[in-house]
Write a protein that binds this DNA or RNA. Structure first.
Lengths: 220, 220
DNA sequence: TGCTGTCTGTGACATTGTCACAGAGTCGTG
DNA sequence: CACGACTCTGTGACAATGTCACAGACAGCA
Protein backbone atom coordinates (compact mmCIF):
# COMPACT_ATOMS: atom_id res chain seq x y z
CA UNK A 1 0.00 0.00 0.00
CA UNK A 2 2.84 2.37 0.75
CA UNK A 3 4.13 1.75 -2.75
CA UNK A 4 0.94 2.42 -4.56
CA UNK A 5 0.83 6.19 -4.76
CA UNK A 6 4.19 6.61 -6.40
CA UNK A 7 2.95 4.72 -9.43
CA UNK A 8 0.85 7.75 -10.26
CA UNK A 9 4.04 9.67 -10.94
CA UNK A 10 5.98 7.65 -13.47
CA UNK A 11 8.95 9.96 -13.17
CA UNK A 12 9.14 9.35 -9.47
CA UNK A 13 8.48 5.64 -9.69
CA UNK A 14 11.49 5.45 -11.97
CA UNK A 15 13.83 6.94 -9.40
CA UNK A 16 16.83 4.95 -8.21
CA UNK A 17 15.54 2.48 -5.62
CA UNK A 18 17.27 4.18 -2.72
CA UNK A 19 15.75 7.58 -3.44
CA UNK A 20 12.43 6.09 -4.19
CA UNK A 21 12.41 4.22 -0.93
CA UNK A 22 13.43 7.33 0.99
CA UNK A 23 10.67 9.34 -0.60
CA UNK A 24 8.04 6.73 0.07
CA UNK A 25 9.23 6.36 3.64
CA UNK A 26 9.11 10.04 4.47
CA UNK A 27 6.04 11.16 2.61
CA UNK A 28 2.58 10.69 3.99
CA UNK A 29 -0.61 10.12 2.10
CA UNK A 30 -3.28 12.37 3.45
CA UNK A 31 -7.00 12.57 2.83
CA UNK A 32 -8.98 15.74 3.01
CA UNK A 33 -12.73 16.10 2.82
CA UNK A 34 -14.44 18.19 0.21
CA UNK A 35 -14.43 21.83 1.12
CA UNK A 36 -11.17 21.75 3.04
CA UNK A 37 -9.02 24.84 2.86
CA UNK A 38 -5.68 23.65 1.51
CA UNK A 39 -4.00 27.00 1.86
CA UNK A 40 -5.12 30.52 2.54
CA UNK A 41 -3.62 33.97 2.90
CA UNK A 42 -1.47 34.11 5.97
CA UNK A 43 -1.32 30.38 6.44
CA UNK A 44 2.13 29.06 5.88
CA UNK A 45 2.52 25.65 4.32
CA UNK A 46 4.56 22.95 5.98
CA UNK A 47 4.39 20.35 3.25
CA UNK A 48 4.73 20.04 -0.44
CA UNK A 49 1.61 18.52 -1.91
CA UNK A 50 1.23 16.16 -4.82
CA UNK A 51 -2.41 15.63 -5.59
CA UNK A 52 -3.34 12.00 -6.18
CA UNK A 53 -7.06 12.20 -6.51
CA UNK A 54 -9.57 14.97 -6.46
CA UNK A 55 -9.45 18.58 -7.52
CA UNK A 56 -8.19 21.72 -5.85
CA UNK A 57 -9.55 25.11 -6.86
CA UNK A 58 -7.25 28.08 -6.44
CA UNK A 59 -8.94 31.44 -6.31
CA UNK A 60 -8.38 35.00 -5.37
CA UNK A 61 -10.66 37.03 -3.17
CA UNK A 62 -10.80 40.79 -3.42
CA UNK A 63 -11.30 43.25 -0.62
CA UNK A 64 -14.82 43.91 -1.85
CA UNK A 65 -15.66 40.21 -1.64
CA UNK A 66 -15.55 39.40 -5.31
CA UNK A 67 -13.75 36.24 -6.31
CA UNK A 68 -12.04 34.83 -9.34
CA UNK A 69 -10.92 31.29 -10.02
CA UNK A 70 -7.28 31.22 -11.09
CA UNK A 71 -6.83 27.55 -11.91
CA UNK A 72 -7.47 24.03 -10.76
CA UNK A 73 -5.03 21.33 -9.72
CA UNK A 74 -6.02 17.77 -10.51
CA UNK A 75 -4.68 14.32 -9.81
CA UNK A 76 -1.08 13.85 -10.87
CA UNK A 77 -0.14 17.49 -10.44
CA UNK A 78 1.83 19.42 -7.88
CA UNK A 79 0.21 22.12 -5.83
CA UNK A 80 2.87 24.74 -6.29
CA UNK A 81 1.36 27.46 -4.17
CA UNK A 82 2.47 25.46 -1.20
CA UNK A 83 5.87 25.06 -2.85
CA UNK A 84 6.27 28.76 -3.19
CA UNK A 85 5.49 29.27 0.42
CA UNK A 86 7.99 26.55 1.24
CA UNK A 87 10.73 28.20 -0.73
CA UNK A 88 10.30 31.86 -0.38
CA UNK A 89 7.90 32.48 2.46
CA UNK A 90 5.89 34.87 0.42
CA UNK A 91 2.29 35.32 1.33
CA UNK A 92 -0.10 34.99 -1.56
CA UNK A 93 -3.50 36.51 -1.66
CA UNK A 94 -4.97 33.28 -2.93
CA UNK A 95 -6.71 30.39 -1.31
CA UNK A 96 -6.92 26.74 -2.27
CA UNK A 97 -10.10 24.79 -1.74
CA UNK A 98 -10.78 21.10 -2.10
CA UNK A 99 -13.57 20.93 -4.66
CA UNK A 100 -13.85 17.21 -4.14
CA UNK A 101 -12.47 14.88 -1.52
CA UNK A 102 -8.71 14.86 -1.91
CA UNK A 103 -6.02 12.28 -1.57
CA UNK A 104 -2.59 13.77 -1.70
CA UNK A 105 1.01 13.03 -0.85
CA UNK A 106 2.47 15.41 1.68
CA UNK A 107 6.23 15.71 1.50
CA UNK A 108 7.90 17.45 4.42
CA UNK A 109 9.94 20.54 3.74
CA UNK A 110 13.31 18.90 4.39
CA UNK A 111 12.60 15.91 2.19
CA UNK A 112 11.36 18.25 -0.49
CA UNK A 113 14.62 20.16 -0.46
CA UNK A 114 16.63 16.94 -0.53
CA UNK A 115 14.70 15.56 -3.44
CA UNK A 116 15.10 18.77 -5.37
CA UNK A 117 18.84 18.35 -5.10
CA UNK A 118 19.01 14.65 -5.74
CA UNK A 119 16.42 13.98 -8.38
CA UNK A 120 16.25 15.61 -11.80
CA UNK A 121 12.87 13.98 -12.27
CA UNK A 122 11.53 15.47 -9.09
CA UNK A 123 12.79 18.84 -10.23
CA UNK A 124 11.05 18.37 -13.51
CA UNK A 125 7.77 17.70 -11.79
CA UNK A 126 8.10 20.76 -9.64
CA UNK A 127 9.21 23.02 -12.45
CA UNK A 128 6.57 21.86 -14.80
CA UNK A 129 4.05 22.55 -12.07
CA UNK A 130 5.33 26.11 -11.86
CA UNK A 131 5.37 26.42 -15.57
CA UNK A 132 1.81 25.27 -15.95
CA UNK A 133 0.61 27.66 -13.29
CA UNK A 134 2.33 30.59 -14.91
CA UNK A 135 0.71 29.57 -18.13
CA UNK A 136 -2.66 29.37 -16.40
CA UNK A 137 -2.25 32.77 -14.82
CA UNK A 138 -1.28 34.38 -18.08
CA UNK A 139 -4.35 32.87 -19.58
CA UNK A 140 -6.49 34.38 -16.86
CA UNK A 141 -4.93 37.79 -17.42
CA UNK A 142 -5.58 37.55 -21.11
CA UNK A 143 -9.21 36.59 -20.57
CA UNK A 144 -10.00 39.17 -17.95
CA UNK A 145 -8.24 41.97 -19.76
CA UNK A 146 -9.27 41.29 -23.32
CA UNK A 147 -12.14 38.86 -23.74
CA UNK A 148 -15.81 39.54 -23.81
CA UNK A 149 -17.83 38.18 -20.99
CA UNK A 150 -20.31 36.22 -23.09
CA UNK A 151 -17.44 34.35 -24.68
CA UNK A 152 -15.82 33.62 -21.34
CA UNK A 153 -19.12 32.49 -19.87
CA UNK A 154 -19.68 30.10 -22.76
CA UNK A 155 -16.20 28.68 -22.23
CA UNK A 156 -16.81 28.09 -18.56
CA UNK A 157 -20.21 26.54 -19.07
CA UNK A 158 -18.72 24.10 -21.55
CA UNK A 159 -15.81 23.34 -19.22
CA UNK A 160 -18.04 22.83 -16.20
CA UNK A 161 -20.79 20.85 -17.90
CA UNK A 162 -21.20 17.20 -17.09
CA UNK A 163 -21.64 14.67 -19.88
CA UNK A 164 -25.39 15.20 -19.81
CA UNK A 165 -24.89 18.88 -20.57
CA UNK A 166 -25.90 20.12 -17.15
CA UNK A 167 -24.04 22.57 -14.99
CA UNK A 168 -25.12 22.43 -11.37
CA UNK A 169 -24.15 25.85 -10.15
CA UNK A 170 -25.59 29.16 -9.08
CA UNK A 171 -25.15 32.46 -10.81
CA UNK A 172 -23.02 33.55 -7.88
CA UNK A 173 -20.62 30.65 -8.40
CA UNK A 174 -20.34 31.35 -12.10
CA UNK A 175 -19.62 34.97 -11.31
CA UNK A 176 -16.80 33.83 -9.03
CA UNK A 177 -15.41 31.68 -11.82
CA UNK A 178 -15.20 34.69 -14.08
CA UNK A 179 -14.38 37.39 -11.58
CA UNK A 180 -17.53 39.36 -12.25
CA UNK A 181 -20.78 40.15 -10.47
CA UNK A 182 -23.78 37.90 -10.07
CA UNK A 183 -26.20 40.28 -11.79
CA UNK A 184 -23.99 40.39 -14.84
CA UNK A 185 -23.92 36.61 -15.08
CA UNK A 186 -27.68 36.56 -14.66
CA UNK A 187 -28.15 38.93 -17.57
CA UNK A 188 -25.71 37.04 -19.77
CA UNK A 189 -27.43 33.75 -19.04
CA UNK A 190 -30.80 35.35 -19.77
CA UNK A 191 -29.51 36.38 -23.17
CA UNK A 192 -28.19 32.87 -23.87
CA UNK A 193 -31.56 31.48 -22.85
CA UNK A 194 -33.34 33.94 -25.15
CA UNK A 195 -31.26 32.57 -28.00
CA UNK A 196 -32.25 29.05 -27.02
CA UNK A 197 -28.71 27.95 -26.19
CA UNK A 198 -29.30 27.16 -22.51
CA UNK A 199 -32.21 26.36 -20.26
CA UNK A 200 -32.18 27.90 -16.79
CA UNK A 201 -33.55 26.67 -13.54
CA UNK A 202 -32.68 27.27 -9.93
CA UNK A 203 -29.12 26.08 -9.31
CA UNK A 204 -28.75 24.66 -12.79
CA UNK A 205 -27.87 25.58 -16.34
CA UNK A 206 -28.67 23.04 -19.03
CA UNK A 207 -26.78 23.41 -22.26
CA UNK A 208 -29.28 22.92 -25.04
CA UNK A 209 -27.19 24.01 -27.99
CA UNK A 210 -23.58 23.06 -27.48
CA UNK A 211 -22.58 23.86 -31.04
CA UNK A 212 -23.64 27.46 -30.75
CA UNK A 213 -21.98 27.81 -27.37
CA UNK A 214 -18.79 26.40 -28.76
CA UNK A 215 -18.91 28.84 -31.64
CA UNK A 216 -19.30 31.67 -29.14
CA UNK A 217 -16.50 30.30 -26.95
CA UNK A 218 -14.13 30.27 -29.89
CA UNK A 219 -15.18 33.54 -31.38
CA UNK A 220 -12.59 36.23 -31.70
CA UNK B 1 36.77 40.68 -15.43
CA UNK B 2 35.33 37.23 -15.85
CA UNK B 3 34.77 37.15 -12.13
CA UNK B 4 32.99 40.41 -11.79
CA UNK B 5 29.41 39.57 -12.71
CA UNK B 6 29.00 36.82 -10.20
CA UNK B 7 29.44 39.32 -7.40
CA UNK B 8 26.00 40.63 -8.25
CA UNK B 9 24.54 37.35 -7.05
CA UNK B 10 25.81 36.83 -3.53
CA UNK B 11 24.32 33.36 -3.40
CA UNK B 12 26.26 32.33 -6.46
CA UNK B 13 29.45 34.05 -5.46
CA UNK B 14 29.34 31.97 -2.31
CA UNK B 15 29.29 28.68 -4.18
CA UNK B 16 32.06 26.16 -3.61
CA UNK B 17 35.04 27.31 -5.69
CA UNK B 18 34.80 24.44 -8.14
CA UNK B 19 31.18 25.10 -8.99
CA UNK B 20 31.69 28.77 -9.07
CA UNK B 21 34.57 28.41 -11.49
CA UNK B 22 32.57 26.06 -13.71
CA UNK B 23 29.70 28.48 -13.84
CA UNK B 24 31.88 31.45 -14.64
CA UNK B 25 33.69 29.45 -17.29
CA UNK B 26 30.59 28.31 -19.09
CA UNK B 27 28.37 31.33 -18.84
CA UNK B 28 28.70 34.25 -21.18
CA UNK B 29 27.99 37.87 -20.48
CA UNK B 30 25.92 39.32 -23.27
CA UNK B 31 24.88 42.86 -24.09
CA UNK B 32 21.67 43.77 -25.82
CA UNK B 33 20.63 47.18 -27.05
CA UNK B 34 17.49 48.92 -25.89
CA UNK B 35 14.47 47.64 -27.72
CA UNK B 36 15.77 44.12 -28.26
CA UNK B 37 13.21 41.35 -28.20
CA UNK B 38 14.41 38.98 -25.50
CA UNK B 39 11.75 36.40 -26.15
CA UNK B 40 8.55 36.27 -28.12
CA UNK B 41 5.77 33.82 -28.87
CA UNK B 42 7.11 30.97 -30.89
CA UNK B 43 10.72 31.74 -30.23
CA UNK B 44 12.36 29.07 -28.13
CA UNK B 45 15.03 30.08 -25.67
CA UNK B 46 18.45 28.47 -25.67
CA UNK B 47 19.85 30.11 -22.58
CA UNK B 48 18.88 30.90 -19.07
CA UNK B 49 19.22 34.61 -18.44
CA UNK B 50 20.30 36.42 -15.32
CA UNK B 51 19.89 40.12 -15.77
CA UNK B 52 22.86 42.14 -14.57
CA UNK B 53 21.92 45.60 -15.65
CA UNK B 54 18.95 47.12 -17.33
CA UNK B 55 15.29 46.30 -17.33
CA UNK B 56 13.18 43.83 -19.26
CA UNK B 57 9.49 44.41 -19.76
CA UNK B 58 7.28 41.37 -20.16
CA UNK B 59 3.93 41.98 -21.77
CA UNK B 60 1.05 40.23 -23.38
CA UNK B 61 -0.44 41.19 -26.70
CA UNK B 62 -4.02 40.36 -27.55
CA UNK B 63 -5.40 39.35 -30.89
CA UNK B 64 -7.05 42.75 -31.20
CA UNK B 65 -3.72 44.49 -30.67
CA UNK B 66 -4.22 45.62 -27.12
CA UNK B 67 -1.33 45.09 -24.74
CA UNK B 68 -0.79 44.73 -21.04
CA UNK B 69 2.43 44.85 -19.08
CA UNK B 70 2.76 41.81 -16.85
CA UNK B 71 5.93 42.62 -14.96
CA UNK B 72 9.47 43.87 -15.24
CA UNK B 73 12.73 42.08 -14.57
CA UNK B 74 15.56 44.20 -13.22
CA UNK B 75 19.22 43.74 -12.44
CA UNK B 76 19.89 40.83 -10.09
CA UNK B 77 16.85 38.85 -11.16
CA UNK B 78 16.32 35.79 -13.28
CA UNK B 79 14.26 35.97 -16.42
CA UNK B 80 12.14 32.94 -15.81
CA UNK B 81 10.14 32.97 -18.99
CA UNK B 82 13.22 31.70 -20.71
CA UNK B 83 13.60 29.15 -17.94
CA UNK B 84 10.15 27.83 -18.53
CA UNK B 85 10.84 27.41 -22.18
CA UNK B 86 14.05 25.64 -21.28
CA UNK B 87 12.32 23.22 -19.01
CA UNK B 88 9.00 22.50 -20.47
CA UNK B 89 8.97 23.76 -24.02
CA UNK B 90 5.70 25.51 -23.53
CA UNK B 91 4.98 28.44 -25.73
CA UNK B 92 3.85 31.54 -23.92
CA UNK B 93 1.83 34.28 -25.45
CA UNK B 94 4.12 36.88 -23.93
CA UNK B 95 7.04 38.83 -25.19
CA UNK B 96 10.02 40.28 -23.39
CA UNK B 97 11.47 43.61 -24.45
CA UNK B 98 14.63 45.36 -23.34
CA UNK B 99 13.42 48.66 -21.98
CA UNK B 100 16.96 49.80 -21.53
CA UNK B 101 20.26 48.47 -22.75
CA UNK B 102 20.81 45.12 -21.08
CA UNK B 103 23.77 43.27 -19.72
CA UNK B 104 22.95 39.72 -18.79
CA UNK B 105 24.55 36.40 -18.07
CA UNK B 106 23.50 33.69 -20.47
CA UNK B 107 23.80 30.20 -19.07
CA UNK B 108 23.53 27.35 -21.54
CA UNK B 109 20.80 24.82 -21.08
CA UNK B 110 23.10 21.98 -20.01
CA UNK B 111 24.95 24.08 -17.46
CA UNK B 112 21.65 25.33 -16.17
CA UNK B 113 20.44 21.79 -15.57
CA UNK B 114 23.71 20.84 -13.90
CA UNK B 115 23.62 23.83 -11.61
CA UNK B 116 20.08 23.09 -10.62
CA UNK B 117 21.20 19.70 -9.43
CA UNK B 118 24.41 20.73 -7.78
CA UNK B 119 23.64 24.02 -6.14
CA UNK B 120 20.91 24.68 -3.61
CA UNK B 121 21.65 28.37 -3.94
CA UNK B 122 21.19 28.31 -7.65
CA UNK B 123 17.91 26.53 -7.14
CA UNK B 124 16.87 29.16 -4.70
CA UNK B 125 17.52 31.89 -7.21
CA UNK B 126 15.54 30.13 -9.87
CA UNK B 127 12.67 29.25 -7.60
CA UNK B 128 12.45 32.66 -6.10
CA UNK B 129 12.34 34.03 -9.64
CA UNK B 130 9.36 31.81 -10.35
CA UNK B 131 7.78 32.69 -7.12
CA UNK B 132 8.10 36.40 -7.70
CA UNK B 133 6.64 36.13 -11.16
CA UNK B 134 3.66 34.18 -9.93
CA UNK B 135 3.21 36.82 -7.31
CA UNK B 136 3.40 39.53 -9.99
CA UNK B 137 0.89 37.77 -12.19
CA UNK B 138 -1.56 37.33 -9.37
CA UNK B 139 -1.22 40.99 -8.65
CA UNK B 140 -2.03 41.79 -12.28
CA UNK B 141 -5.11 39.57 -12.15
CA UNK B 142 -6.26 41.24 -9.00
CA UNK B 143 -5.83 44.71 -10.48
CA UNK B 144 -7.43 44.00 -13.81
CA UNK B 145 -10.34 42.12 -12.34
CA UNK B 146 -11.12 44.22 -9.31
CA UNK B 147 -9.53 47.63 -9.27
CA UNK B 148 -10.82 50.88 -10.66
CA UNK B 149 -8.93 52.35 -13.52
CA UNK B 150 -8.26 55.74 -11.96
CA UNK B 151 -6.60 54.04 -9.03
CA UNK B 152 -4.50 51.83 -11.27
CA UNK B 153 -3.50 54.78 -13.41
CA UNK B 154 -2.40 56.74 -10.36
CA UNK B 155 -0.31 53.76 -9.24
CA UNK B 156 1.41 53.50 -12.60
CA UNK B 157 2.07 57.19 -12.87
CA UNK B 158 3.74 57.16 -9.48
CA UNK B 159 5.73 54.06 -10.36
CA UNK B 160 6.88 55.42 -13.69
CA UNK B 161 7.63 58.96 -12.56
CA UNK B 162 11.22 60.11 -12.42
CA UNK B 163 12.49 61.97 -9.38
CA UNK B 164 11.38 65.26 -10.91
CA UNK B 165 7.80 64.02 -11.05
CA UNK B 166 7.68 63.68 -14.81
CA UNK B 167 6.49 60.70 -16.77
CA UNK B 168 7.69 60.75 -20.36
CA UNK B 169 5.12 58.60 -22.04
CA UNK B 170 2.18 58.70 -24.38
CA UNK B 171 -1.40 57.89 -23.60
CA UNK B 172 -1.01 54.84 -25.79
CA UNK B 173 1.89 53.55 -23.72
CA UNK B 174 0.02 54.12 -20.49
CA UNK B 175 -2.92 52.23 -21.94
CA UNK B 176 -0.60 49.32 -22.70
CA UNK B 177 0.67 49.39 -19.14
CA UNK B 178 -2.85 48.99 -17.85
CA UNK B 179 -4.34 46.80 -20.55
CA UNK B 180 -6.93 49.35 -21.55
CA UNK B 181 -7.60 51.67 -24.48
CA UNK B 182 -5.91 54.94 -25.28
CA UNK B 183 -9.09 57.00 -25.22
CA UNK B 184 -9.87 55.76 -21.75
CA UNK B 185 -6.46 56.79 -20.48
CA UNK B 186 -6.93 60.15 -22.13
CA UNK B 187 -10.20 60.72 -20.32
CA UNK B 188 -8.79 59.60 -17.00
CA UNK B 189 -5.81 61.89 -17.37
CA UNK B 190 -8.11 64.74 -18.30
CA UNK B 191 -10.01 64.20 -15.10
CA UNK B 192 -6.79 64.13 -13.06
CA UNK B 193 -5.76 67.36 -14.76
CA UNK B 194 -9.11 68.94 -13.99
CA UNK B 195 -8.48 68.17 -10.34
CA UNK B 196 -5.07 69.78 -10.61
CA UNK B 197 -3.15 66.60 -9.80
CA UNK B 198 -1.26 66.36 -13.09
CA UNK B 199 -0.24 68.65 -15.92
CA UNK B 200 -0.46 67.27 -19.43
CA UNK B 201 1.57 67.97 -22.49
CA UNK B 202 2.42 66.01 -25.58
CA UNK B 203 4.34 62.91 -24.60
CA UNK B 204 4.52 63.89 -20.96
CA UNK B 205 2.61 63.80 -17.72
CA UNK B 206 3.86 65.96 -14.88
CA UNK B 207 2.73 64.98 -11.43
CA UNK B 208 1.79 68.17 -9.68
CA UNK B 209 0.12 66.75 -6.60
CA UNK B 210 1.78 63.55 -5.56
CA UNK B 211 0.00 63.38 -2.23
CA UNK B 212 -3.42 63.28 -3.84
CA UNK B 213 -2.26 60.75 -6.40
CA UNK B 214 -0.91 58.56 -3.64
CA UNK B 215 -4.17 58.80 -1.79
CA UNK B 216 -6.00 57.70 -4.92
CA UNK B 217 -3.50 54.90 -5.54
CA UNK B 218 -4.09 53.52 -2.08
CA UNK B 219 -7.83 54.01 -2.00
CA UNK B 220 -9.97 50.97 -1.59
C1' DT C 1 -48.93 26.82 7.33
C1' DG C 2 -45.59 30.39 8.06
C1' DC C 3 -40.50 31.54 8.63
C1' DT C 4 -35.99 31.81 7.02
C1' DG C 5 -32.39 31.77 4.06
C1' DT C 6 -30.75 31.29 -0.59
C1' DC C 7 -31.29 32.15 -5.35
C1' DT C 8 -32.84 34.98 -9.09
C1' DG C 9 -34.74 39.20 -11.52
C1' DT C 10 -34.86 44.19 -12.39
C1' DG C 11 -34.21 49.13 -13.08
C1' DA C 12 -31.30 53.04 -12.61
C1' DC C 13 -27.06 54.56 -12.88
C1' DA C 14 -21.67 54.69 -13.09
C1' DT C 15 -17.62 53.05 -15.25
C1' DT C 16 -15.13 51.27 -18.95
C1' DG C 17 -14.52 49.86 -23.92
C1' DT C 18 -15.24 50.65 -29.02
C1' DC C 19 -15.58 53.16 -33.12
C1' DA C 20 -15.12 56.80 -36.27
C1' DC C 21 -13.57 60.65 -36.69
C1' DA C 22 -11.07 65.49 -36.34
C1' DG C 23 -7.62 68.58 -34.71
C1' DA C 24 -3.02 69.64 -33.15
C1' DG C 25 2.00 69.01 -32.66
C1' DT C 26 6.54 67.48 -34.80
C1' DC C 27 9.69 66.63 -38.26
C1' DG C 28 11.89 66.33 -42.55
C1' DT C 29 12.15 68.08 -47.20
C1' DG C 30 11.75 71.03 -51.05
C1' DC D 1 8.79 79.22 -45.06
C1' DA D 2 5.36 75.81 -47.05
C1' DC D 3 4.11 71.31 -47.45
C1' DG D 4 3.12 66.70 -46.50
C1' DA D 5 3.52 62.68 -43.47
C1' DC D 6 3.27 61.02 -39.25
C1' DT D 7 2.27 60.68 -34.42
C1' DC D 8 -0.27 62.19 -30.53
C1' DT D 9 -4.45 63.85 -28.51
C1' DG D 10 -9.51 65.07 -28.15
C1' DT D 11 -14.47 64.05 -28.76
C1' DG D 12 -19.13 62.27 -29.21
C1' DA D 13 -22.08 58.42 -29.61
C1' DC D 14 -22.83 54.17 -28.35
C1' DA D 15 -22.03 49.29 -26.37
C1' DA D 16 -20.57 46.41 -22.61
C1' DT D 17 -19.84 45.71 -17.92
C1' DG D 18 -20.10 46.85 -12.86
C1' DT D 19 -22.73 48.69 -8.77
C1' DC D 20 -26.56 49.41 -5.90
C1' DA D 21 -30.93 48.85 -3.94
C1' DC D 22 -34.38 46.49 -4.09
C1' DA D 23 -38.27 42.68 -4.80
C1' DG D 24 -39.95 38.24 -5.84
C1' DA D 25 -39.42 33.17 -6.14
C1' DC D 26 -38.07 28.89 -4.33
C1' DA D 27 -36.64 25.27 -0.84
C1' DG D 28 -36.31 23.47 3.64
C1' DC D 29 -37.94 23.34 8.16
C1' DA D 30 -40.42 24.26 12.61
Amino acid sequence: MTESWIERFPDLAALPPAERAALVARAAVVSLPEGSVIFAPGKEAENFLLVLEGRVRVQQVSASGREIVLYRVSGGEACIMTTSCLLSHEAYAAEGLAETAIRAVAIPRATFQDMLGSSPDFRRIVFSGYSNRISDLMHVVEEVAFQRLDKRLAQRLLALAGPGGDVATTHQELAAELGTAREVVGRQLKELERRGWVALSRGQVRLSDRASLEALAQAE
